[in-house]
């Protein structure tokens, strides 16, 4: 029972991070391999904020989210736009953006190493038990879960109830058709990329409440987010949320029954199962 609850708590935070990647990949069509590094940057930012001010890590979101938004907007404008312009086809853009963001991820890791050093960083916040169904759980996990759910819900409503959200969803379906109904596609893509980065950093910030981070951990989170997005189906945000909970559960099961060092293996097993059974994702439609 406690495995299920811990898995669900973890899944909530994963859902947030996967939504970030999904905005970047589904709408802006950029396969961002530096996504995990953005998450680690968010975690480190919160660590730094908390050690410096002793305010709640949740308040640090108010600083980190706008910063990450601005940083990702700049990344899209400066680094990705030239690639979009020079790409002759979608395939070419995919290869170029994979290479560029892969390089970017190393720059991030290098930058984080230079700023914070190579140690594991963690802090203690709300490390008290809270009782759910008579079992104790870390209050920090529950806090992060609630924070993540609130952000997920906010993002979901924004995407489905506002004009800007509608524009992003239109671009996700077809960039060229979206252009025909006078949606500014480059602008919408930049917005989606920046928003995705901000959401990912927020996910990192929340994860840092109960996880320990070091600078080289980004690639693991990139992979987890990618597995979630593929499992859920690239074009559907509900799929990502369901998939995030599945991954959270699978990881917790592996971590508590086999070995905590094998969580990545859980992600890979899910990945292989999805590839073999339903490569278009749980909620994806098979393209003809």
């Amino acid at each position: 029972m406690d495995i299920i609850i811990i898995g669900l708590l973890l899944g909530g935070t994963y859902a947030l991070m996967a939504m970030g990647l999904q905005l970047q990949y589904g709408v802006a069509r950029i396969m961002n391999l530096a996504n995990g590094e953005m998450l680690v940057a968010g975690a480190f930012g919160t660590f730094w904020f908390y050690s410096a001010t002793k305010f709640s890590p949740l308040i640090s979101l108010a600083v980190i989210v706008p910063l990450a938004f601005a940083a990702n907007w700049a990344i899209y404008r400066v680094l990705i736009t030239p690639l979009v312009r020079r790409a002759k086809s979608q395939g070419q853009l995919e290869v170029d953006s994979i290479l560029a963001t892969f390089g970017l991820s190393f720059i991030f890791v290098g930058g984080l190493l230079a700023l914070f050093g190579g140690d594991y960083l963690s802090y203690s916040y709300l490390a008290r038990p809270i009782f759910i169904l008579g079992q104790p759980y870390g209050l920090n996990r529950v806090t992060a879960f609630i924070g993540a759910l609130a952000l997920c819900a906010g993002l979901y409503i924004w995407l489905h109830k506002t004009r800007a959200g509608l524009a992003l969803r239109a671009v996700a379906v077809s960039p060229s058709a979206a252009g025909l109904v006078s949606i500014n596609v480059p602008r919408a893509s930049a917005l989606a990329f920046a928003l995705g980065g901000a959401v990912t950093a927020a996910g990192g910030s929340l994860l840092s409440i109960f996880l320990t981070f070091d600078a080289s951990l980004g690639v693991v989170f990139t992979l987890k987010a990618l597995v979630i997005v593929i499992m859920g189906g690239v074009s559907d945000i509900r799929g990502a949320i369901v998939a995030a909970f599945i991954l959270g559960l699978a990881e917790t099961i592996v971590a508590s029954l086999v070995d905590p060092g094998l969580t990545l293996a859980a992600a890979y097993v899910l990945f292989i199962v999805i590839l073999l059974i339903k490569p278009e994702g749980l909620f994806g439609r098979r393209s003809s």
Binding site: F102, L104, F106, I107, G110
Partner: peptide
């Protein structure tokens, strides 16, 4: 100590 960073820059 800056190898990772420089490698990333070279790559870009």
């Amino acid at each position: 100590s800056q190898t990772t960073l420089l490698l990333g820059v070279a790559f870009l």
